[in-house]
Design a protein around this nucleic acid. Structure first.
Lengths: 226, 226
DNA sequence: AACCATGTTTAACCATACATTAATATTTAT
DNA sequence: ATAAATATTAATGTATGGTTAAACATGGTT
């Protein structure tokens, strides 16, 4: 069942719409403010987000662009009473998959949702869980890093960071992006935390001279496997 | 440039729309019947199809479902005067990414097209990131400059400046323009700073006599690669 | 409740990278 | 010949990263 996030401040309308979507086999999380919506996005993986635009705390546009910082691939649509062309343009420019104006036809809404989900499924490359590089064998879900006979157990953070590095093997892992994906935001202390974990990973990987976590000053790290 | 197929039987409207899309950097193939549209699909790879519904030979719905038989992944939208809800439903059920009714706003059409293309493809970066000249291999995002076995790490400013030079290879890099792009403004001190970075780059590149950063007094630099 | 194991964050200290500015030398245009 | 523009090298201050250890949090066990 698909997870749908609905951020709509009109409580009554929101619950009605949510239960209508539930009836049609979607798993709906309903938030009534931009800020709660954003934290929901940070804690759960949604297949689609539906944003109202006028919201308390953080408006829908801001919410969408915030989300894109760390969940770039999640499709989203705006569902709003704002019918101004400028707003629609802004919405699409933010990368929205649709911009639906109230009042709307519920049946059509369902179809549009389905269309967006179908499209995103078509080109969703599921992230790998296992990575093999040189003599190492890393399983993210098991949080194990195997090297020859030695089995290392990784902590959640270690595993998440190593996964991000692996996903960008020999390419740049942007520090900001990684922080947003793993920690949720790129605050100073989280950045320092990341430094600590880089050190830990470097220690684990140091047995093999053909592997290096090279720092790219000011932008991130490069996981170099020769 | 993205390839777009437009199947629209109204010749005048179709050509106007096609040239409008061309103007906006799409490569448009215009067909005026369902059957010619289908054979176009068979011979060329399109990134997006725009189908009218009422067409001679084969209507847009049939065309879409025919296409899906062998090009399931190509996104398509309907662009039609048929505003009946039943038609919209049928369109979406066929897997359309959007259903746009005439008359429509051209600016919005462009945005919708962009949204669909973005979703279906990973948007390609416009500016190149890698440059190869003579024996050098420069990657801007990695900030690495490789020459044979020697790997040089560049600072952000060095990398930005070298990129600008590469983008204007054997041509003039306007000093003012580069300053504005890299430093944000062309103040006196930034210009001095740029001098310093030119010196640094010259040092890196000095191993190869076939490369030169020639200053063009009063206007900028020429990155000469022989 | 006190204890321990594990994981994460914060703190402290140090090293390095970076951009800018300054000081000085050289080239170019007129 | 002179002023302006450009080159080169060095000095400075700041931002960022690396490492280690201590503090804090969490959850399980006795």
């Amino acid at each position: 069942m698909e997870n749908v996030l609905l951020v709509e401040d009109d409580f009554n309308f929101g619950t009605v719409l949510a239960s209508y979507l539930e009836l049609n086999n979607y798993n709906v999380t309903h938030c009534t403010s931009g800020t709660t919506g954003l934290s929901a996005i940070k804690t759960k993986n949604f297949d689609l987000c539906i944003f109202d635009i006028m919201l308390p705390g953080m408006d829908g546009f801001t919410l969408a662009s915030e989300m894109k910082q760390f969940k770039n691939e999640v499709p989203f649509v705006f569902l709003t009473a704002k019918t101004l062309k400028e707003d629609m343009i802004k919405g699409y420019q933010l990368g929205a998959d649709d911009y639906i104006t109230k009042p709307f036809d519920t049946e059509l809404l369902l179809l549009k949702i389905k269309a967006v989900l179908q499209r995103s499924k078509k080109n969703k490359a599921t992230e790998p869980d296992e990575f093999v590089f040189r003599n190492f064998h890393f399983r993210h879900s098991h949080r194990t890093l195997q090297h020859g006979e030695t089995h290392i157990k990784l902590s959640p953070r270690e595993a998440d960071l190593l996964k991000q590095l692996c996903l960008h093997q020999n390419d740049l892992l942007n520090k900001d992006k990684a922080l947003k994906i793993i920690w949720g935001d790129n605050s100073y202390f989280n950045a320092r935390s990341m430094d600590v974990y880089i050190t830990k990973l470097r220690k684990y990987l140091s047995v093999d001279k053909g592997i290096e976590i090279v720092s790219v000053h000011g932008s991130g790290y490069r996981f170099v496997v020769s």
